[in-house]
Design a binder for these strands. Structure first.
Lengths: 199, 199
DNA sequence: CGAATAATAGAATGATCACTCAATAAATCA
DNA sequence: TGATTTATTGAGTGATCATTCTATTATTCG
């Protein structure tokens, strides 16, 4: 049992809320006061636990990776049918990353950000997580090739990178208020790409 | 001849510089003072000419569209060989939008931005310009189909949206410090998509 | 119960920043 | 030349914001 006064906040919930707020308003678009208000965390506690605003952002990014990215990575890894796994990954783009203007992807936002004060910026976290997804996607495609689902001369790295880049693009479209048909068309083209590579 | 004291600044140059700075640092990442310093424009003149910081941003976005987007739109429109025009468009992604961390695309940044104070935010400009590129790209692909360069059953809207979404993704990758090979792979896959659609 | 520990509350604080004010300089037109 | 128009200069202002200070409350261990 821990000593001292028990915390009023649930750490995971704080990070989920913070991630959502950062995603909606951007790093500079939301203040620490409002973050405290919305998360229910006292300001002192925030500084005690996370150091500063940038620290909270970094941990919120990590949490976002765990809640938003890990399931996808694991679904790909654990898919019995590798090709079907990749197809499912593509099909959920609309719901998952292109949903609404409030939505989008905290990673693409983090990578678009530029913090001159901190060269080793928090986008390193975003890079780490997208890098992991990239490796998993490549490995899953390689698995589909070895299983004879895709043509032997398919380059899994090319296909994986093209798909992941499209996913980034979908996030931008979703956030930027471009027509929703763009997302559907992108998904259709990505699935067609996979079909073309079929053995 | 204009009345009054002649301005020290060149308006187009001011907008080009401002666009570059906004692209590098983001809207919140750079202050009006530094914008004046770098553009050589007096602060009073800036407020007289552009109203406020957001006004400068909006006009810088427009200028960016004219210098960065118009050439591509026109190259597509004026291409004798429609398919070759689209291929050239894709091939220049690496140089043009995925160049460096300072680079990227001001439009994708603008669309990722969220300004709660201004619901009709400046990203409307970005949407307008990317929308124009989207229409042109679709029209050029339709031209390639009608010229018999692409299969009759090709959907130009699907292909155009998939390509444009990839372009957005390339901008994110370039900014986010992901491996350069991702860009090359994406370009390769986009060109392969076009090859698959060949008649 | 008393000491120690950890969290909360609410008000400062110091810096930054968008924006403005007052005065001046350089040009054109009558 | 003098009036008018426009741009520059440089300091100032009020607001916002991240961060900290001081004091208080709630809990566990001896």
């Amino acid at each position: 049992m821990p000593r001292g006064r028990p915390p009023k906040f649930d750490e995971e919930q704080v990070l989920d809320t913070a991630a959502a707020l950062f995603k909606r308003d951007g790093y500079d678009g939301i203040g620490v006061a409002e973050l405290c208000q919305e998360t229910g965390m006292a300001m002192q506690s925030l500084y005690h636990r996370f150091g500063d605003k940038a620290g909270l952002y970094r941990e919120a990014l990590e949490r976002f990776g765990q809640t938003a990215n890990d399931p996808q990575v694991q679904a790909l890894e654990q898919s019995d049918d590798a090709l079907a796994g990749v197809q499912a990954f593509v099909r959920q783009w609309k719901r998952h990353i292109g949903a609404s203007r409030d939505g989008g992807c905290l990673f693409t936002q983090a990578m678009s950000r530029s913090d001159r004060s901190d060269p080793q910026a928090p986008d390193a976290v975003a890079r780490a997580y997208t890098g992991r997804l990239r490796r998993t996607l490549t490995a899953t495609l390689r698995r589909a090739i070895e299983a004879g689902q895709l043509k032997r001369d398919t380059d899994p790295a090319v296909l994986a990178d093209a798909l992941l880049t499209s996913a980034f693009g979908v996030a931008v479209i979703g956030r930027g208020g471009m027509p929703g048909s763009m997302i559907e068309h992108t998904i259709a083209a990505a699935l067609a790409m996979l079909d073309q590579a079929k053995a």
